[in-house]
Design a protein around this nucleic acid. Structure first.
Lengths: 237, 237
DNA sequence: CGTGCCAGGTGCCCT
DNA sequence: AGGGCACTTGGCACG
């Protein structure tokens, strides 16, 4: 049996199903009126209301309202779930350590519980990431400039890894920072840290910095300007 | 009736329920074997497998597997959902514009569909945010240093808004950047941009920069060192 | 609307 | 385990 469902169960019945779902590694969804208390990295309280609550076999807990992509409360993977019935409420506590945090969902009334056995899966293939942008540039270095020669990706520096490190026709070092979408000041600062690290490491003040992105804000542009860095507009394919 | 459920429905029956759920602003959950295609800011394909799919009345779509907090695929709020039956599959397409993107979920088999009417709600109260940290410091400026005098929060500069702007006992300007958790190089750079903006604006090279956070990485510390900025360790309460 | 930035960010990879 | 960073980041507040 791959699916077990209860409609308007007693707390005791819901408790039984929830407990066995946790034991057997089922994916669990619950809908009902509940309040939620979180304490850990921050602390929060969510007053009574109807929510969709999801418990995953990997320890994830999600509390969803009718709005937004983000759960209003959650617990990350690696947590352990525990159900109990007390004071006329079905309480489900999700706990983890490092950092220590716990999520309590207290159901006043459970409308629906469903437990699913998830066996069949396959992985996501995604294109259009920064990694794809990098491959595209490595295959056609001339989109940076004529004669640009890539030497390494993820080249390590004291300031962190450079997306693409290379040389121009004059043999001068070139530091390239890639972004798959419109960038602001932080990307310019990031490039600056890398260029400075390379400049110091190679003792070569002629090191160039190039920011590659589909577009750029005014503030980012003036930062590049100040540091005499360059910008290449590259549309994501 | 607040909840409608179908177990192993025909595509036609599922289509009817899904369509009316979209029309009536219901919260919808579906579990079944499906494949997913996304095209928009990036592009992705998810091969056949069992997933939990959620459609919210605000236009959100979420495709969850049995692992992780994040949906494997999704569509943000503001999208519109549309169901159809074709080629023996139940297709649900979620579309939005600006940016243009679309998500197709193709159910080969629907195990369960549930539509919930969500009427009862209340809002989240959260404590321990950066805003709380700011208020805590404004109430006790001496945690920064004896005689520190806050003048403004969110003070605007050419580089962006300063968390707390103030003066020390010598009357010198002080720029404070707050972080609620351990910080890396980007926070140091952020502080640097603000201090430079203030230094320029006030023509006062004695402007001080202070980073306030529970802890700090080595790289961030050496950046602060280089720029002669200071660091105050403040535990979140 | 775009710009900028926080988030209980999450997830991935690397050391 | 910690560091650094990308992410279809999402969400908010402000100009």
């Amino acid at each position: 049996m791959t699916t077990t469902r209860l409609h308007r169960p007693t707390h005791r019945d819901a408790f039984e199903l929830v407990g066995s779902a946790f034991e057997n590694g089922r994916l669990l969804t619950m809908f009902g009126r509940c309040e939620v208390h979180y304490d850990g990295r921050a602390a929060s309280t969510l007053g009574p209301g109807q929510r969709l609550v999801i418990y995953k076999p990997d320890g994830t807990a999600l509390v969803h309202t009718a709005e937004n992509r983000e759960p209003v409360n959650w617990q990350p993977p690696g947590s352990t779930h525990n159900a109990s019935v007390r004071d006329g409420q079905l309480q489900i506590r999700s706990t983890r350590s490092n950092p220590t945090e716990q999520l309590d969902v207290l159901f006043e009334r459970v409308e629906t519980v469903s437990a699913y056995a998830v066996t069949d899966r396959s992985d996501l293939k995604l294109t259009g990431s920064e990694e794809d942008l990098r491959q595209w540039i490595l295959n056609q270095p001339e989109v940076i400039e004529k004669g640009f020669h890539p030497i390494a990706t993820e080249r390590q520096t004291k300031a962190g890894p450079i997306d693409i490190f290379g040389e121009d026709t004059a043999g001068q070092p070139v530091v390239i920072e890639l972004k798959r979408r419109r960038v602001g000041p932080s990307a310019a600062s990031q490039l600056q840290r890398y260029v400075e690290a390379i400049t110091t490491e190679l003792s070569n003040p002629a090191t160039r910095g190039i920011l590659v992105a589909p577009s750029i804000t005014d503030r980012a542009a003036s930062l590049l300007d100040k540091w005499e860095f360059e910008y290449r507009s590259v549309e994501i394919e």
